[in-house]
């Protein structure tokens, strides 16, 4: 039996279960509208470490440990750790894997990493290659600023389309087989995105760079699964921001997709409130990851949301490609997550 649906989607027939999750966030995220929902809030941007980079990987590591603690599992029980981040050579993920000791596949999908890791984790679990898999990612405002933009103390202005890199991390424990039966949420489909580039070169306008990929993946998912906005309680995008979300709606309309705007939930638009002066909203791997683990998964498991499509978006640029004047390729991966009754005694 082929598990492929159409060109880009796979059906996860066994329904790998979401067994647990944990989120970590910074102070500014704590001050946002979803601030009370994060499992752990770091005291300051250093999180007790001696560099911003060390603080970032410490957040990732603690999100994974918290996730396992909440589900009563040990690191030795977990067979795979799928993770990536924004820093050069994904040092946050690699260094966290060193500390955790779980067999590790490093991923790079920029800010799409959360749905990329869930897609791959879902397929590995459904294929019977692992029973317990942790998918996780993180980002940190200060490390992203110094790698991609400017030193923190430089007195420059942010542009209106610019987004604020979220300081945060999220970790999800996926399970297959007997363990999955107890889960209150399951992955049912994964749609792998194409890398699209419509020539945006402004590194301060990531939303515009990623919106075409988001529209493409969403249209492909609807086409492959024969679904529409009507089949989902929420269609979640990662970090398009306000400008990128507007562009996504326009692009979907051009593709002939009927858009239910009230169901389009962008983590970047939601994580901060307007008074927090983040301009177009939040961004970064940690944006969608922390919102997924703090707000969306609990809602799905509680049954408040029956079915969501989680689609994190990534801008595949580097400081080198930017300086050489290259345009910014974008990518988006989608996973469908459904509420399950969950057998208490399974």
């Amino acid at each position: 039996m082929s598990r492929r649906l159409g060109k880009q989607t796979v059906a996860l027939a066994g329904g790998p279960g979401v067994l647990g999750w944990a989120s970590v966030a910074g102070r500014k995220e704590h001050d946002g509208p979803y601030g009370d929902k994060f499992d752990r809030v770091i005291a300051d941007e250093m999180d007790g470490q001696d560099s911003f980079e060390a603080a970032e990987r410490h957040m990732l590591e603690s999100a994974v440990r918290l996730c396992l603690l909440k589900t009563g599992k040990k690191t030795e029980d977990v067979q795979l750790f799928l993770s990536g981040d924004l820093l050069n050579q994904i040092i946050s993920a690699g260094f966290a894997a060193r500390a955790l000791g779980i067999p590790f596949y490093g991923l790079y999908g920029a800010c799409s990493t959360m749905s990329e890791s869930l897609s791959l984790g879902g397929m590995l679990a459904d294929g019977g290659f692992a029973d317990l898999i942790v998918c996780a990612t993180c980002s940190h405002f200060c490390t992203a600023e110094r790698q991609y933009r400017a030193p923190l103390e430089l007195g420059n202005q942010r542009t209106p389309t610019q987004q604020w890199t979220v300081t945060g991390a999220g970790a999800v424990l996926l399970g297959a087989g007997a363990a999955a039966a107890r889960a209150k949420a399951a992955l049912t489909h994964a749609t792998c995105g194409r890398v699209l580039d419509l020539g945006v070169t402004d590194a301060n306008n990531m939303g515009a760079a990623m919106a075409p990929a988001a529209a493409d993946t969403l249209a492909a998912h609807f086409h492959d699964t024969d679904r529409s906005f009507e089949d989902y309680d929420l269609v979640v995008t990662g970090d398009l921001g306000r400008h990128g979300r507007d562009l996504l709606i326009e692009l979907l309309k051009e593709k002939g997709v009927f858009v239910r705007e009230e169901k389009l939930f962008d983590c970047g638009c939601e994580i901060f409130s307007a008074r927090q002066d983040t301009h177009a909203g939040g961004s970064g791997c940690g944006c969608s990851a922390s919102m997924l683990c703090a707000h969306l998964l609990p809602e799905v498991c509680a049954g408040h949301l029956q079915r969501i499509l989680f689609m994190a978006t990534g801008a595949l640029l580097s400081p080198t490609s930017s300086m050489q004047g290259e345009s910014i390729p974008g990518v988006a991966h989608a996973v469908a997550i459904e509420h399950r009754q969950g057998e208490e005694n399974a």
């Binding site: 941007e45 030193p151 923190l152 103390e153």
Partner: peptide
């Protein structure tokens, strides 16, 4: 001197 004395802070 500033680099020796001060540390950059979160915006």
């Amino acid at each position: 001197l500033a680099a020796l004395i001060f540390k950059p802070k979160m915006k």
